[in-house]
């Protein structure tokens, strides 16, 4: 019965990730894409626990899930900090151009 439940949850997770993949593909701004990647990453941590339940090795896969959640959070924060800094640099460049002209 646990197998049935795990298959159901894992399959539906894959199915519901399709709209997020669409958002990554066409997303108008870079921020939409990071947001969708962040959501998919969080759900991958859940998927790891589901795989652990399928193979009867939850105590092992939980550690992977913890590491994955940590990396996912770090990735989203680092990318948004990077975009923030490049945006600030662009703003400064535009202002200095205006001052020269």
């Amino acid at each position: 019965m646990i197998d049935w439940f795990a298959m159901l949850v894992g399959g539906s997770l894959f199915l519901f990730m399709v709209p997020l993949l669409y958002r990554i593909w066409v997303g108008p701004t870079a921020y939409d894409r990071i947001l969708a990647v962040n959501v998919i990453g969080t759900k991958t941590a859940v998927l790891l626990v589901v795989i652990g339940a399928l193979f009867d090795r939850v105590h092992m896969f939980v550690d992977f899930a913890i590491a994955y959640a940590l990396l996912n959070f770090l990735a989203s924060v680092v990318v948004s900090r990077y975009l923030n800094r490049t945006a600030a640099e662009r703003n400064v460049e535009e202002k200095t151009k205006g001052a020269r002209a």
């Binding site: 921020y31 959070f73 948004s80 900090r81």
Partner: peptide
């Protein structure tokens, strides 16, 4: 992470 992303988008 929501807050950081939103701040980045707002300042861009």
């Amino acid at each position: 992470s929501t807050h950081v992303l939103m701040k980045a988008a707002f300042e861009d």
